[in-house]
Design a protein around this nucleic acid. Structure first.
Lengths: 146, 146
DNA sequence: TAGCATTTAATTGTACACAATTTAATTTTA
DNA sequence: TAAAATTAAATTGTGTACAATTAAATGCTA
């Protein structure tokens, strides 16, 4: 009985995370429409805005994405003129991703996004901190499973 | 300064939800491999195991998915022989999804999944309950935004 | 140093997600 | 009741995710 509830709760939580993720992505979709980028592309840009010129490998490590996802995504971003892709001279295996002028300038337009998002989620600092801790906890456990 | 941290936290939280969602899906991928179904397909099966014969519309309402996602997915599930699709006689616009014998029998094989998953996530009841409440909260706010 | 192992991207193939449009059936209303 | 509006699926097109494989460059070692 008690165990049974426990299991139902598990299903609910996983489904809720799945649903919340899509709802948040939807919020970002609206906010990022102007910048003509998707949420995963925005994540790449956040990394590049913080530190320009990273390899695909480095981006993948930070975002937990492989080249199967990144390569086509980065090509789309290149086609949109916000990043550049070039082979590293030191190691021809690596591809270095860097911001174009246009990509760099988008940073200013993106600055309002976090504020907007927090507003849309309407959560206070305590809630945010608590949730962040819980998620960090889960993530650590999940990623150490493998 | 304080505001700034707040915003960073927001980025972290959204990114963490995005990452946790993918990690959980990976866990399910391993657990569902035997049953030859994906996590979204498993969600459909959960609903059908609970109450057989639902329309695409009803499934979509519960899962927050539209026909653009469901139609091809349900066709794949039909091709795998675990569900049937037939037009409703009362309302020819609706398509009724129901379990096949094979789909119904999979329920037994799926019973161990929640236990396995809770184990893999290694969370106690308190954590699960707290997280569930927080996510419910967020979801309510997000879905009332529109 | 030649050959094997490893590393980094790219490629291939499958499966969601979702916006936007289309098609067909049903309901509403003028 | 015929035309307009609404509803339910399907379709079309774009963009992730990710497993598995391939190709090319680099490192390692016998």
């Amino acid at each position: 009985m008690e165990n049974n509830n426990h299991l139902k709760l598990e299903s609910q939580i996983c489904f809720k995370i799945y649903t919340v993720e899509r709802e948040i992505t939807k919020l970002y979709r609206n906010l990022l429409e102007d910048l003509d980028m998707t949420y995963p592309q925005y994540l790449v840009m956040l990394l590049l805005w913080e530190k320009d010129a990273m390899t695909v490998k480095q981006l993948g490590k930070r975002l937990f994405l492989d080249s199967g996802t990144l390569t086509p995504m980065l090509k789309r971003m290149e086609a949109n003129g916000i990043i550049e892709r070039r082979r590293s001279a030191e190691d021809e295996r690596s591809v270095i991703i860097s911001l174009t002028k246009k990509g760099d300038e988008l940073k200013k337009k993106a600055e309002c996004i976090p504020t907007q998002l927090v507003e849309d989620m309407s959560m206070n600092r305590n809630e945010l901190t608590l949730l962040n801790d819980t998620l960090t906890d889960i993530l650590t456990r999940l990623q150490n499973k493998k």
